[in-house]
Computed example of a mutant assay.
Amino acid sequence: MLDRYARVLGGERPEHTWQRLFLTRMETVALGVLLLAEHGWNLSVINRFKVPQAAPDAGNDGPRIYRVELEKHKRGAGRYFETRNLTDDGAASPGRLITQALEATVFARAAVHTLSPGTDRFLIWRSAKAPLDPQDETSKKSGIGVFGFGISGSTAKSWATQQGFSSSPFRRGRRTVNTLHRRVPGQNSQATHDRVYALADPQVRQAAIPVIAEAAEAVVTKAHATAFAAELREGADPADQPTATADCHDYDNSPYPGPGGGCSASFLMCLACPNARIHPAHHSRLAHLHHALDNLRTAIEPDQWQNQWEDGHAGLEHLKGQLGAAVWTRALADVTNTDRELIALLLNGDLAP
């Protein structure tokens, strides 16, 4: 090298000369780690990565859309390849790293194309010298001349050691990225992502506990609201119409209208009706009905009880919780013969709505 060029570059060492244009082997591993972190791909996919093809954009200022081809040999013959479209329309977009990687490898890809036209490998790095045996078939597959392709497992381990990690970042890193950060499939189906990654990860299971509990509580709250919509009152309204389980505030405008108008719902459905009004005169009768349904549960087939009585029982459970244990206990003590007779008729189906 001429001295004047060396002075301008800062020296004749690799970092002053060819490393200005080409990635090193370790820099290529670092790029692979970024691809892992951004897209959740595994090392075999990153290692075989082909140059993404940019689709025509809407104009000079339009976003870049890359067609990325993922090679996955574990899927079996005929299903090796899968394509993704990644758009670069800003710093936080999924295609921005692809744009930056293309810029970082442009000179290496141009040099390799000159040596071997048609080569479409994306991750290309330069070494200080060519392989010792240029006729070695393994060398031919992994590179051309002083240029190498992809990331080997041993190179990934070497990079990890240099960075102070105990092992290659790709295997465990991919699981962490897909389950804890991206939380969406990287290169798998949703079913595989859920079964192999999310459900198998202890941190995901632990984090899911409060989410599941909150969802279950919301379901219970919704069920209670559906099973019990009656309004609690301190006393009766003379304008209301008494029924077997509550007072009806608006019989002609029922949520369950009959063919000829009025209400077609059973008296147990009164608990789930916003037109129903419940006051202390109903407490003993409803407490007795709740007790009778508990006894009925043990006397008939479970499916029959669920189909006929479970919703009404759920409404009474909700009412019991609203009134409190003391009021409910007192109501059971105040049950009259009239209450018993009325509830017996109700359970036997002798009361028509």
Rank of each mutant, 00 (worst) to 15 (best):
R297F: 10
G10K: 05
S266V: 13
V335H: 00
T114S: 11
T155C: 05
E234F: 04
T298Y: 07
Q19K: 11
M269H: 10
G324H: 01
A218S: 14
L21D: 13
G150F: 06
H279S: 07
H193S: 06
L316K: 01
G261T: 06
I65K: 05
E15R: 13
A276H: 01
A130D: 11
G90K: 02
D133H: 06
E82W: 07
L293I: 10
A216Q: 13
D350L: 14
T179M: 01
R277W: 07
G315T: 02
N253T: 15
T119E: 08
L35D: 00
E137I: 15
D201A: 08
T226R: 11
T226L: 11
A287H: 00
G150A: 07
D250W: 04
L21V: 10
A92N: 10
H73G: 10
T176P: 01
P185T: 07
N348H: 09
S152G: 12
P131G: 05
Q322M: 14
D240N: 10
D88G: 03
Y5G: 11
S44N: 07
S167R: 14
I343A: 02
P238E: 11
I300A: 04
A215Q: 13
P63M: 03
L271D: 01
G321S: 13
S254H: 04
Q100N: 07
A101G: 02
R75C: 01
L132S: 13
N188H: 12
Y80D: 09
D201M: 08
G59L: 04
T245F: 00
T221Y: 02
P353I: 03
D311L: 15
P131C: 06
R340H: 03
S139Y: 06
L115W: 07
D89H: 12
V184M: 08
R126E: 04
D133W: 03
G186S: 09
T329M: 12
G40L: 02
G148I: 06
R174M: 09
P274Q: 09
L86R: 04
F170M: 05
C263Y: 00
I98R: 01
Q190A: 15
T192Y: 10
Y251W: 15
Y256P: 00
H249F: 10
N60Y: 11
R182N: 04
D250N: 14
G40N: 01
K157E: 09
N307T: 15
A352E: 13
W18L: 05
A54T: 13
Q203N: 09
L102R: 05
H283S: 03
T99F: 05
L86T: 00
R84T: 09
L347C: 08
E317M: 13
F165D: 02
T87M: 03
N348T: 14
V45M: 08
R7H: 11
L23G: 00
L346V: 07
V211Q: 07
